[in-house]
C-alpha cells in the first residue's frame, strides 16, 4: 500500500471501488448458519464479512452477575487474527472492548430483557474479514441472530456507516475511504420504529453535512433492513414443499 493519499473520488464522481456515493456494497445475509448456536447469522458488506452467534436465554455463570428483574446481555465483538492484512493479536484490544459495549447497548434497546429475569443472552460477533464498517455489519448480523434465536425484540437493528471523503458524503465506507477520509459516522436504527440505537462520529462534519449524512444513512439502513427481512424469511421458504 502506498503512503500517499489515493484519489477517493474520480472525475466521474465514482469511488475507489466504482460505487456511486449513495451506493451500498453488495450485501449478503444468511440466517441459521451455526448448528450449535440458538441463533446465528452471516452478513457480508462487500469484503467485510461477519458472523454472529446468540446463545440463550440461559443461566448465568458466574452467578453474581444475575439481575433479579431482567436478563443481562453479554456481547463480544472480536476480530479474527486473519481478518486484517497484518495479523491482529487475538487478545481483545481497547477498540474491541469499546465496540462490544456499544453493540451491547444497541441490542439492549431492542431486546425485551425483562421477560427472562435471572438469565443471560450471550452474543458473539466474529469479524472474519475486515474492510471497513465491521461494527455496523456486526450489529446487523447480531440482530438477525437474536431474531433467529426466537428472542422477543422490539425490532431488528440495521446499521451502516456514512463517511466524508474528498469532501463528498458517501454511504457504507470501506477501509481505504475510512483511512484517508475526513469523517466516519456509523449509525444503527430500529427502522420500523424510526429510532436510533447507535450513533458515533469520527472526524468533522458541519451541522448541514451531519443532517445530510444522517439522511443518507437512513436510506442505506432501509435497504439493509429489507435484506434482513428477506434473509429471515428465506429460511422458512426454501424448505421442500411436499
Amino acid at each position: 500500500m502506498s503512503e500517499e493519499k489515493p484519489k477517493l473520488i474520480n472525475e466521474e464522481g465514482l469511488r475507489v471501488d466504482g460505487r456511486r456515493p449513495d451506493e451500498l456494497r453488495p450485501l449478503r445475509m444468511e440466517v441459521g448458519v451455526l448448528k450449535n448456536a440458538d441463533g446465528s447469522a452471516l452478513v457480508a458488506f462487500g469484503n467485510t464479512k461477519v458472523i454472529a452467534a446468540v446463545y440463550g436465554p440461559r443461566e448465568i455463570h458466574p452467578r453474581h452477575l444475575t439481575l433479579p428483574d431482567r436478563a443481562i446481555i453479554r456481547c463480544r465483538y472480536h476480530m479474527a487474527p486473519f481478518s486484517t492484512s497484518d495479523r491482529k493479536s487475538p487478545a481483545p484490544s481497547r477498540r474491541e472492548i469499546e465496540l462490544s459495549k456499544v453493540v451491547r447497548e444497541a441490542l439492549e434497546a431492542t431486546i425485551f430483557t425483562e421477560l427472562y429475569p435471572r438469565t443471560t443472552i450471550d452474543v458473539f460477533i466474529e469479524v472474519l474479514q475486515a474492510d471497513g464498517g465491521t461494527r455496523t455489519a456486526g450489529l446487523t448480523a447480531a440482530a438477525l441472530a437474536v431474531a433467529d434465536a426466537g428472542i422477543p425484540m422490539r425490532d431488528l437493528v440495521a446499521a451502516v456507516a456514512v463517511g466524508k471523503v474528498d469532501g463528498v458524503l458517501v454511504l457504507d465506507i470501506n477501509e481505504i475511504e475510512d483511512e484517508y477520509g475526513e469523517a466516519d459516522m456509523p449509525v444503527a436504527m430500529m427502522p420500523s420504529l424510526d429510532k436510533v440505537v447507535l450513533l458515533q462520529l469520527n472526524g468533522v462534519l458541519t451541522p448541514e453535512e451531519f443532517k445530510e449524512a444522517f439522511k443518507l444513512a437512513k436510506k442505506g439502513i432501509m435497504e439493509i433492513y429489507k435484506m434482513q427481512k428477506e434473509a429471515l424469511f428465506r429460511k422458512y421458504r426454501i424448505l421442500p414443499q411436499a
Binding site: A147, G150, I151, P152, M153, D155
Partner: peptide, 15 residues
C-alpha cells in the same frame, strides 16, 4: 402473545 403495543400500533416481537 409475542406482540407489543407502542402508542396505538401493535407490532410483532418475534419471528
Amino acid at each position: 402473545d409475542y406482540t407489543y403495543r407502542e402508542d396505538d400500533k401493535i407490532y410483532s416481537s418475534i419471528l
